[in-house]
């Protein structure tokens, strides 16, 4: 156990765990989107869990900090708030918020953060950026709504935990990054049918179970069309 001071409060946290987990364990909420408790090496990608630590000249993401004895941590300065708000607004500017039609409505982490930080679900500061992705995921059981996905990576993480080499993957790069799957449909069917942990873990209902009627038909030879990013006027 390590003694640390968070917002003036003294707590004792497990050594091996991250600062974020330590705080969460003690009921101190730090906003986070890309972190799961069992992660050995969290990606640190959503940039929400910023805290200030005495002796460091810049805010740091708490999911990547190991608690050190007598660390003094601040979770709510105006500086942090500003960063977290921007992070949230940026994410929202790239997220299609049609809440009424979304299965996550009312239990959505984004809605919760919006309330907490007092920003709009459709931020005025930034224009909306569409996620124009023509293709659906080539998966017999899963369906993905790219315009909802916030690229938290939780689905890829649980998939990797299950299979070592995951069936879900990030593809492409930068603003075009998507979550997808590629390969042999039959094999996916066999592996995923009993798992579907990714659907469970997705915080914004971007990954869904395919409606029975919407299932991709498996061609006789078991090889579906490849979902290859379109690079040319030739198909």
């Amino acid at each position: 156990m390590v003694r640390i001071v968070v917002d003036g409060r003294e707590i004792f946290v497990d050594e091996g765990k991250s600062l974020l987990q330590g705080c969460l364990d003690h009921g101190i909420f730090i906003p986070n989107l890309c972190y799961l408790e069992d992660m050995e090496d969290p990606p640190g990608s959503c940039r929400m869990c910023f805290v200030e630590i005495e002796g460091m000249n810049q805010p740091v993401v708490s999911c990547k900090v190991e608690p050190k004895p007598d660390m003094v941590v601040n979770t709510s300065s105006s500086e942090l708030l500003r960063l977290q708000r921007t992070s949230l607004r940026l994410l929202l500017s790239n997220h299609e918020a049609k809440c009424k039609a979304c299965p996550s409505n009312r239990r959505c982490i984004l809605q919760e953060l919006v309330k907490r930080f007092g920003v709009r679900i459709r931020p005025r500061r930034y224009d909306h950026i569409d996620r124009e992705v023509a293709e659906d995921i080539e998966h017999p059981l899963l369906q993905i709504v790219h315009s909802r996905c916030i690229l938290c990576g939780k689905c890829v993480h649980v998939c990797q935990r299950q299979y070592g080499s995951p069936i879900l993957t990030y593809a492409r790069r930068g603003i075009d990054t998507i979550i997808t799957a590629f390969g042999d449909v039959e094999a996916m069917y066999a592996l995923c049918e009993t798992c579907l942990a990714c659907v469970e873990v997705c915080p914004v209902s971007a990954l869904l179970l395919r409606e029975p009627s919407g299932a991709i038909e498996i061609p006789a030879d078991g090889s579906p069309e490849a979902t290859i990013p379109c690079g040319g006027a030739t198909p």
Binding site: P166, L168, T169, Y170, R173, A181, G183, D184
Partner: peptide, 12 residues
């Protein structure tokens, strides 16, 4: 490894 992983790397 899964085809997905190859695809993810190649498209990066």
């Amino acid at each position: 490894i899964s085809s997905s992983e190859v695809y993810g790397v190649a498209t990066f």
